[in-house]
Design a protein around this nucleic acid. Structure first.
Lengths: 337, 337
DNA sequence: CGCGCGGCTGAGAGCGCTCCTAGTCCATAC
DNA sequence: GTATGGACTAGGAGCGCTCTCAGCCGCGCG
């Protein structure tokens, strides 16, 4: 064993130790094809004995790959981290990436300053691509900069304003909304109101559009009130509807949190769920099981979404054109009809 | 202007364009010392015209510096992100690092799998050092691994079990606790109970120890109940104390959230704050201003803490020995005495 | 016996920077 | 005139990898 004088062992040290060439060690390191069993064993032994760790920067320089992708957060931290859906997408994206041997690095870009730094970082060659979530319309120029730098990007949800230019994975908002209205209809509920989500996100608009289309002539603007996906906004949207005195026997909320807020208000107003009014949410987030009765909702398969986002991103990094993907949702029937 | 065939411009392209050597461009890039004004101007012009961006991996390879540090999270996401203190440390650390030209990369290490990946990442040469927060005792082996890899590490709070081996920055828990007891005494409150924080963190133990020492003979175990810094735990600790029927005229809670929980319980029990019982918290987090009356508390200067952590870390990265630092706290008098 | 071929290996040439050293140039000092 | 030194510059060496390609070896086949 040759001396290192305290420096980190390099691939050459391993090669020397194993009695093979640098090239052979490199081949072992990268899948081990075209390496004889004997050589592989020697190399593995040498790696262990020297305590060799690959130098990621040298590798990146040679391959012009970094092995990491940015997970871009343009939402305020508080908002993001209090939404269990986001957290789940984050987690399962990290897992999916690990499956491809890549690491996720979380990039927060809430304040202007942070956005500037984030752009620098992302376009500066630190990552191979980026996953963006919660792209409100106000993050458009941000996206544009990433695109201009030719950074592979995949969005969770349809990136409004960039539908043609960036790949995305989204749950089937329209299909889900349609199924909800039909489900309600099957239970004899046809006077439906909709608590819509933010209209600068594809989920918000998609669900509203579908609701509108499906109920057709029964539609009128007073059957819709808007919120921002928070529980509180669901409550106030519900109050708004009640104040309008439109007759209704069912509420379709744009997400579970808003549905929960609506149920709070309904209870206060002395309306029984589901007897007097049925309530259906969207997401199947943890809160759906915490309401009484438990909430019937349209499940968004976030695991699938993350998985597919990663797949598409990896594809795009490898030069295959950006894909688009719509993932079906699934009705979870619980106690609110 | 020479052609690039779609590849990213390199330092050589800039040099050629500016009519100087690679070395000169590099000098401009790194502070611009020993460069004539003329040359600098030409180089800057060339950088702009070519759209040159430094290649971080090439630079890292040459300097064996990455320019980024890990912000290590061993807490559960939910817990971490719902604690405004953490969020503030995160933010101001990122700012402070930016001031040194470095970037923060957030590393989540909650599950076992994630911890494994995190260790790989941190010790694999991706970062120059790490900031660790909320190091409960159960993250000891984790810390040990980082240390074994000779990674510079600075801890927020005293890293129990590693006091001698890793640098840290902590608020003055003992001094703060002492000042609280004295403040209470000055208001005639001497029958104090303490709602202690988790005893596997230095904040939790430090405040309890100081409380115990300062009240001296007045101390007895029944004057202490334990919690985990959450509001709910503060409430149940308070209930525990009430059930014990020890006489008390003041509550010293280990943090503001627990104090708020205690105040909820006190109100239910029909005890007036501060008339019947005084309450003092610790942290001066946002919740201290949301209670009625607003909470008197000991402010922890998280901005200072982050700043100093970054300073110490940078020092250590530059080969100066790890420092330790205790930052004074400051009493914020509001309505609970 | 010569040839081709598959399996495997070694070595050179980069990747794009920074660092170091030798050197140039010019102004001032002797 | 030459020597001295400060300001600046060029370019080679090297950071630790991967990639490519030529070459080796042994085997089966004509």
């Amino acid at each position: 064993m040759t001396k290192l004088r305290g420096r980190r062992p390099t691939i050459d040290d391993v090669a020397r130790e194993a009695g093979v060439s640098r090239g052979t060690v490199s081949r072992v390191l990268n899948g081990g094809h075209w390496v004889s069993d004997g050589a592989r064993v020697q190399v593995e032994k040498a790696i262990k004995s020297t305590g060799y760790r690959i130098n990621p920067h040298a590798r990146s320089l040679a391959t012009s790959r970094t092995g990491s992708v940015g997970f871009l957060l343009t939402e305020s931290y508080e908002r993001f981290f209090s939404d269990p859906n986001f957290l789940q997408i984050l987690r399962s994206s990290a897992d999916a990436l690990a499956g491809h041997g890549m690491t996720l690095v979380l990039i927060m870009a809430d304040t202007l300053d942070e956005r500037h730094r984030a752009t620098e970082y992302l376009t500066g060659g630190h990552v191979d691509g980026a996953l963006v979530v919660s792209s409100h319309r106000d993050s458009q120029e941000f996206l544009a900069e990433l695109l201009a730098a030719r950074l592979p990007v995949i969005s969770a949800g349809i990136p409004l304003g960039f539908e043609e230019q960036v790949g995305y994975v989204t749950a089937d908002d329209e299909g889900g909304a349609r199924a909800i209205v039909e489900h309600l209809g099957a239970h004899g509920r046809t006077r439906i109101v909709h608590l819509a989500g933010p209209q600068d996100t594809s989920g918000g608009t998609g669900r509203l559009q579908a609701f509108r289309t499906v109920i057709g002539d029964a539609y009128s603007d007073e059957r819709v009130a808007y919120g921002d996906y928070s529980r509180e906004s669901g409550a106030s949207a519900m109050r708004e509807i009640l104040a309008r005195e439109v007759p209704f026997d069912a509420v379709f909320a744009a997400n579970d949190l808003m549905a929960a807020g609506a149920m709070d208000v309904l209870a206060q107003a002395g309306l029984a769920v589901p007897e007097d009014v049925a309530v259906v949410g969207f997401d199947d987030s943890p809160v759906a099981q915490q309401t009484t009765p438990q909430l019937t909702t349209m499940r968004q398969p976030f695991d699938r979404v993350s998985e597919e986002m990663v797949r598409l991103l990896v594809d795009e990094i490898n030069g295959r054109p950006a894909g688009r993907m719509v993932i079906p949702t699934e009705l979870v029937e619980r106690g609110t009809v």
